[in-house]
Design a protein around this nucleic acid. Sequence first.
DNA 1: TTAATCTTTAGAGTTAGCTCTAAGTCAAGA
DNA 2: TCTTGACTTAGAGCTAACTCTAAAGATTAA
Lengths: 142, 142
Amino acid sequence: MSYSIGEAAKMVGLTAHTLRFYDKEGLLPFVKKTSSGLRAFTESDIEWLKIIECLKGTGLPLKQIKQYIDWCMEGDATIPQRLNMFIEQKKHVEEQKAKWEKHLEKINFKIKYYEDAAKHGDLNVFERNPKLLEEKKRLFKD
Amino acid sequence: MSYSIGEAAKMVGLTAHTLRFYDKEGLLPFVKKTSSGLRAFTESDIEWLKIIECLKGTGLPLKQIKQYIDWCMEGDATIPQRLNMFIEQKKHVEEQKAKWEKHLEKINFKIKYYEDAAKHGDLNVFERNPKLLEEKKRLFKD
DNA sequence: TTAATCTTTAGAGTTAGCTCTAAGTCAAGA
DNA sequence: TCTTGACTTAGAGCTAACTCTAAAGATTAA
């Protein structure tokens, strides 16, 4: 059993246009076609799409995703490169998470700031709450 | 005391080109110019840049950042909108963090997978370790 | 004062990742 | 069989966010 491009697209939350674009970019060399030229996505192809989505979702550019797919197609000799790619991507994800954590602190500060401002209808927040000014200095020092 | 565009750029990790681009896009209405037409960034302007960087870093498009800056320039009447924007952005950041967490699980699975593959020089990982197959099914089921 | 190194503008060019169109082909239900 | 809707390709167009260029003016160190 296999899926049309529209069905596959729905299953992974993309459009058929996007899947064709990925195919054109060489990201889907594993997708076979029927005798009449229609793409037929297998269950295994859907799993490939999910891995592509995972890598894309963590900020890996399509070119590097293609590099990974190419390695997969080349066979067992490229296992070390693939392992290395995932290790690098894990590092990248953890760096990003730390960055988002820092951004979140600043956003939380802004929420406190504007909550007080909204309550009083003006921006004299630091006069009312000097501790918040200290927090601001700490958060925006670097 | 104030900073030239090049100094300001260095302080926030952007290029002078990018700062000029932001200015052209209306993101830096607060930056004043000297009598001879050079931009002079104050300490306060540098803080604005850091907030812009924070919002950009959490994925807010420049257009929406401009909207926020515009609200700030309009005065106290827009405090509720600004508060709301940060609350929405906090939601967004937390959704993203959850997504990255899920991606990270998949990446960790792939690392385990390829570590075993690298050790044995082939991809018969699931035959050697059926538990990993179960983990794969769990992680990629949706 | 002069040379080197900024900075200014307007505007063109680039990159990534889609997104859509046109013109035609294929498949499934009435 | 006919119609409707999904599929095919090549290729154009789009958006966001830069990135760079050219030509001219400003600043700074020797």
